[in-house]
């Protein structure tokens, strides 16, 4: 077998002999990008479609109605509710996750396996199955149909998730920084606030954003516990999809999808190789 210079250099990992990329790669990328982005195209187009008769490929008339809908009172209110719930859930999940994460990342204790299981199961087991079970209790304690109830039930998938992510962050933390701070005269609380938290900041930000995202996208838990009284954006969207108004549905869909995409683009760099972080997104 005659080995060409190219084979040899490629074997050595020096693909510089060939221009990085090249026509075949660009073509592949374009094809893949098209396939991946294709389903989003109709969403964009329909959101501005005024009249769009079949079988036209392009809408006959373009309308602002969809965009106006976003500013409609009901939508604004639902957006505000979604934001309120998501921010609260993110804050609570991070606080509780920080505490649990410290135990997971820094302490030795028996029953590690069990804790691992308990922190993974709520993220994976369908929320619907579990919520059907506890709905009665939400009703009994007056939490059904309330924002507080929705916030609490959304803690179920987010807290374990945050605990896992922050546990990994704590495991990567060098405890000696805290010891050093103590020898400099800083008590436990001050050390935590001025040394530990700043060191954990990247992971905290990522966790907050991801839990926000999970809450923002949540539908079934809000439906079951909110009872239709707590109206978040996903609920409005679901209703719109059921109606025959595609323009409205598409416009709302864009509104719902915007924060997640923006957040992920911001956060993507920090999540290199951390499969469990992506898990939260793949879920919902």
């Amino acid at each position: 077998m005659r080995e060409t210079l190219r084979d040899r250099s490629r074997a050595r990992g020096l693909s510089r002999i060939r221009p990085p990329g090249g026509l075949r790669t660009s073509a592949t990328v374009v094809v893949l990008a098209t396939a991946v982005l294709l389903p989003l195209v109709p969403l964009l187009v329909w959101s501005v479609a005024g009249t769009w008769r079949y079988p036209d490929v392009v809408p006959g008339r373009v309308t602002r109605r969809g965009l106006d809908l976003v500013l409609d009172g009901e939508v604004v209110s639902a957006t505000a509710t979604s934001l309120l719930i998501a921010l609260t859930v993110a804050a609570l999940a991070c606080a509780i996750g920080l505490s649990a994460g410290r135990a997971i990342g820094l302490h030795r204790f028996r029953g590690r396996r069990l804790v691992q299981f308990l922190l993974l199961a709520p993220v994976i087991v369908p929320g619907l199955a579990v919520t059907l079970g506890i709905q009665v209790f939400f009703v009994r304690y007056g939490l059904a149909d309330t924002v507080l109830g929705v916030v609490l039930v959304q803690l179920m998938p987010t807290v374990p998730y945050a605990a896992t992510l922050l546990g990994a962050a704590y495991a990567n933390l060098d405890v000696d920084y805290e010891r050093q701070a103590r020898t400099l005269g800083s008590g436990p609380l001050r050390t935590f606030l001025t040394v530990t938290v700043p060191l954990l900041r990247p992971a905290l930000v990522t966790t907050a954003l991801l839990t926000f995202l999970i809450s923002w996208s949540e539908y079934i838990l809000t439906l079951l516990i909110g009872g239709g009284q707590v109206t978040t954006l996903p609920l409005l969207l679901f209703a719109a999809i059921g109606s025959s108004d595609r323009t409205a549905a598409a416009a709302l869909g864009l509104l719902v999808v915007l924060p997640p995409v923006v957040i992920v683009v911001l956060v993507a760099g920090r999540l290199r190789g951390r499969d469990d972080a992506w898990m939260g997104l793949a879920r919902g």
């Binding site: 991946v36 329909w46 679901f238 999808v257």
Partner: peptide, 24 residues
């Protein structure tokens, strides 16, 4: 570049995904 692309579609909630596939 493709990783970023893939990650952003990962961010699309199932609800919106259902809408997109339906429209498609």
């Amino acid at each position: 570049p493709l990783t970023t692309l893939l990650q952003s579609t990962l961010a699309v909630p199932h609800l919106v995904g259902a809408l997109c596939i339906g429209l498609l």
